[in-house]
């Protein structure tokens, strides 16, 4: 457990300590579990896709402009998050903070639009309790939305820590892990975009 905080140029800062290596590996394993979790939600959504019980169908609900914008926001935020990690490798504290703040703004925009979308649906009478399809839809997309919201809180916390203590093995590890998490949510969204929205519009 005791490991010197050796800083050489080959190893990135977040991997420089035993603690950092363990936690990053642990987080990868956790993401494995998250993949299973979302797979189950996707699978059940697919099963319920046509079980609309006379209520609104995907075609009735989805608004192309809306979900394209959401997709654009989240994909861009993943890109800016990647830039932040790039700055992290260069030990550039200001760069990291700026890019993460942009990521945050895009993320907030995404969550806001999604919340708006949900409120709209409920207003149109498409509630969770309307049909099995809508239960599946709100659960899948809502779970992703909750993850993104949690990610936003998490990034804010870590940015405060980075602003206070600068870039060091601990903050580097935390920034790296939250970056992984953010990219993971982006990947999940790509699947939601394809499976829920595109398929919903076509079928």
């Amino acid at each position: 457990m005791s490991q010197s905080h050796s800083l050489n140029n080959q190893t990135p800062l977040e991997y420089s300590t035993e603690d950092g290596r363990l936690k990053i590996f642990g987080f990868w394993v956790f993401l494995g579990a998250e993949i299973i979790l979302f797979s189950c939600l996707f699978a059940s959504y697919m099963v319920y896709l046509h079980r609309t019980a006379g209520g609104p169908t995907p075609d009735d609900l989805f608004n192309v402009k809306e979900f394209m914008t959401e997709t654009f926001l989240l994909l861009t935020s993943s890109f800016t998050c990647g830039l932040a990690t790039h700055e992290l490798r260069r030990h550039n504290k200001t760069g990291v903070i700026i890019w993460f703040i942009i990521t945050l703004i895009l993320g907030l925009g995404f969550v806001g639009m999604e919340a708006h979308e949900f409120v709209d649906y409920v207003g149109e009478g498409a509630k969770m309790s309307t049909s099995a399809f809508l239960t599946g839809f709100f659960t899948l997309v809502g779970t992703h939305g909750c993850h993104v919201s949690l990610g936003i809180l998490w990034i804010i916390g870590i940015l405060i820590q980075t602003a206070r203590t600068g870039i060091n093995p601990v903050t580097a590890r935390k920034l790296f892990i939250v970056g992984l998490y953010w990219h993971f949510l982006d990947v999940v969204w790509v699947f939601i975009f394809t499976v829920v929205y595109l398929t919903g519009m076509v079928l």
């Binding site: 319920y48 019980a53 209520g55 309790s129 049909s131 099995a132 239960t135």
Partner: peptide, 18 residues
């Protein structure tokens, strides 16, 4: 839990649940 607490229809015998 969603079914029982929030009126979802995943596993109910009605409204398309399975």
């Amino acid at each position: 839990t969603i079914d029982r607490l929030f009126g979802g229809h995943f596993f109910t015998a009605t409204a398309g649940g399975m």
